[in-house]
């Protein structure tokens, strides 16, 4: 568990660091993607129960000893869809900005803007 938590904290920080420091618009989009994956990983960790089965039951035999928590799984599905949709919107905007300025770098865009 601890290792996974460490991985999540590092991934989240890494994503934020990319967004804060990088100049390239695509890299900013990637940073946000990294942050979101960290959060999805957290959802998975929270739903995990050691030795648990997936929350899909059988019609006849309902007797499973331990079933992982289905709620975070359902929530993470929603979060993934929302994240993917927003990323698509972001890429579309990046394409538009690139068409206007012919560059992806924030400081060059600022220079062109004057």
């Amino acid at each position: 568990m601890e290792t996974t938590f460490l991985a999540i904290a590092v991934l989240f920080g890494l994503g934020l660091y990319i967004i804060l420091t990088h100049q390239n618009l695509i890299k900013i989009a990637m940073g946000i993607g990294v942050m979101e994956s960290a959060i999805i990983l957290l959802f998975i960790i929270f739903s995990y129960r050691p030795g648990g089965t997936a929350p899909i039951l059988d019609a006849d035999a309902q007797a499973y000893d331990l079933i992982v928590d289905p709620i975070p799984q359902a929530l993470s599905l929603t979060a993934i869809v929302i994240g993917a949709a927003t990323t698509a919107l972001m890429l579309a905007l990046i394409i538009k900005i690139y068409n206007r300025y012919n560059t992806l770098y924030i400081d060059e865009i600022k220079k062109l803007k004057g």
Partner: peptide, 13 residues
């Protein structure tokens, strides 16, 4: 577009 992009990055954060 620039406004929207800035808004989007802040919004996603």
């Amino acid at each position: 577009f620039e406004g929207a992009f800035k808004y989007l990055v802040m919004g996603m954060l």
